[in-house]
Design a protein around this nucleic acid. Sequence first.
DNA 1: TCACAATGTAAGCGTATACTTACCGATGAA
DNA 2: TTCATCGGTAAGTATACGCTTACATTGTGA
Lengths: 197, 197
Amino acid sequence: MPRRNQTNEKRRELLPIVARAFAERGYRRTTTAELAERCGVQENILYRLWPDKKAMFIAAIGYVYDLSVAIWSRLLKEADGKQTAAERLLAYEAEHLGEFGHSRIVFAGLSETDDPDIQAALADMYQRYQRFVREQIAAHQARRHKTAPPDAALAAWAVVGLGTVASISRELGLLSDRQRRRLMAEIGRLLLEGPAA
Amino acid sequence: MPRRNQTNEKRRELLPIVARAFAERGYRRTTTAELAERCGVQENILYRLWPDKKAMFIAAIGYVYDLSVAIWSRLLKEADGKQTAAERLLAYEAEHLGEFGHSRIVFAGLSETDDPDIQAALADMYQRYQRFVREQIAAHQARRHKTAPPDAALAAWAVVGLGTVASISRELGLLSDRQRRRLMAEIGRLLLEGPAA
DNA sequence: TCACAATGTAAGCGTATACTTACCGATGAA
DNA sequence: TTCATCGGTAAGTATACGCTTACATTGTGA
């Protein structure tokens, strides 16, 4: 009998490195040679793990989502009587926003949306992301029953947009850390609470 | 004497075509051969108009901003006693959002932000864009003096984010036209008016 | 008309890049 | 020990792409 197959373990080991490369340099500019070098292997090793470069990228998209959810879930488990989950999430994102380059990999993908596989991967990720945020917002609104909070689904999209523009502003050096935190805090609160504060 | 130099006219003539190509296919995937073909000229003609491909892209970034401002300005001149300029702008964007691919070209650029020239061009564009929106919001708030409207600068960034996420959702087919209009209308109003409605 | 720059065409050049092939030593159950 | 398979190295291939060069044609002011 041959040795046992360690393909899955290797995939899990290399995927964070692959994802970081795509986040830093975008899809097209990240060459398979660079991926291999960062991973400390030869190119054909990567090709044994994924059929082509596109599959590596799609796997990376999945990875950054899983990573975000893992971080958020850990955060939400640390119960806090004063703040709702949504409030803690906003505060966390204000502080650590875009730390892994979540949004950079999305921007890279958005330049490839005429590829149906990449488009589907991005759409799936966004839907999960928005659903997660929406659930937190709905829970928040249920606890703090205001008279007329915004529709949770719309508010969730707006929060996603808020995070996006905050990421862009960080990327381009448009806002100081302080200003960005204020943006997330004040507008985030407005989106959670609605006009009847 | 030789013929008179028509470089500037030619640039103005080809720039919309170049910008559309970059918006549709992203920076890296748009080849200079494709640019030339779309423009109906040979490649070296483009190289007489701009020093390199990067310059063509940066010119395209400037073009989409100028185009947006031209459209908005026209819109704002059509006075309307009932709606403020900010309200009309929101309504217009809800309807025609991303018609030219304004945001697509930004996404393409955001994958190239380690190039200082591209980063500077994007940062400049975003700052002008946010300033424009902020002025409209401030004017709106001055007319409808609410007790505690959001800081106009923050609200402007949030509106930019709202437009961005709406563009993404259109790109990925995440929201119906109807849902996207609701998103822009309801959250847009919230951002203009603040919590004291 | 003529000189000469502007404009256009066609072909090529060097390099980068996604992906492949050929090969080799290590592993571990039979 | 055997031997099929796994994990890894090194080199190659075909193509695509940014950019250049060589050269012909056109239009215009002197």
